[in-house]
C-alpha cells in the first residue's frame, strides 16, 4: 500500500483547493456536500421512466425540458435501503464532463439542506477505514458547526467510475 500512502499525501496537499461553496443534502442520517459548481439545478421528483438492463441504482430517465437525462438513486448507490419518496425528496441535476462533452445526470436525495461556505481549515482528509474500503469518491470531511459533512467527488460517484462499472455489467 505504499502507493496508497502517496496518494493520501497528495490529498492532504490538495485540501486547500477544496475550499469553497458546497450544496449539502441529507441521505439517511448523514449530510453530504457536493461542489456548487457541479450543480445545475434542483428539481422535485417527477415521473421516471425505468430503463432495462441497468444497475439497480439507476432509476431511469426523465425529461428535463426536452432533454433526456439519467437519474440515479444515491441511497441505493451507497447501499442504503430504498425509502419511499416524500415531498422533500429532490433530484439534484449535476453536470459532469463526459467523453462527448458535458453530460447531465440527476441524483435522487432525501432532502436538500443549504449552500455552505467551507474553508480550508474546516476540511479534513477522508478517514482511513482500512485497506478494503474504496474512498476515492470522498474528497474530504467538512466540519461545520460541529457537524460533519461528507464532501463527495461527484465525478467518481456517478461519473467515470460509474461508467466503468456500467461497462462491466
Amino acid at each position: 500500500m505504499g502507493a496508497g500512502g502517496n496518494k493520501r499525501d497528495e490529498k492532504v496537499v490538495a485540501m486547500s483547493e477544496l475550499e469553497g461553496k458546497y450544496l449539502t443534502f441529507a441521505l439517511g442520517k448523514e449530510e453530504y456536500g457536493i461542489g456548487i459548481l457541479k450543480v445545475r439545478e434542483i428539481i422535485g421528483v417527477m415521473e421516471i421512466t425505468s430503463v432495462p438492463h441497468t444497475p439497480e441504482y439507476i432509476k431511469g430517465v426523465i425529461n428535463l425540458r426536452g432533454r433526456v437525462i439519467p437519474v440515479l438513486e444515491l441511497r441505493i448507490k451507497f447501499e442504503m435501503e430504498h425509502q419511499e419518496y416524500t415531498e422533500r425528496t429532490c433530484i439534484i441535476v449535476v453536470e459532469l464532463s463526459g467523453e462527448s462533452g458535458a453530460i447531465q445526470v440527476g441524483m435522487l436525495v432525501d432532502s436538500v439542506s443549504e449552500v455552505l461556505n467551507i474553508s480550508a481549515e474546516e476540511i479534513e482528509p477522508p478517514p482511513s477505514f482500512g485497506t478494503t474500503t474504496n474512498l476515492e469518491y470522498i474528497l474530504g470531511m467538512g466540519k461545520v458547526k460541529g457537524k460533519v459533512k461528507i464532501l463527495l467527488n461527484v465525478d467518481h460517484v456517478i461519473g467515470k467510475g460509474a461508467l466503468e462499472q456500467l461497462e462491466k455489467l
Binding site: 430503463v51 432495462p52 438492463h53 441497468t54 439507476i58 430517465v61 437525462i69 439519467p70 463526459g98 453530460i103
Partner: peptide
C-alpha cells in the same frame, strides 16, 4: 430521437 445521456448508450434493446 434523443440520447439517454452519454451515460447509458450501450443498453441492449434500447
Amino acid at each position: 430521437i434523443k440520447s439517454l445521456g452519454g451515460y447509458m448508450t450501450n443498453i441492449s434493446g434500447v
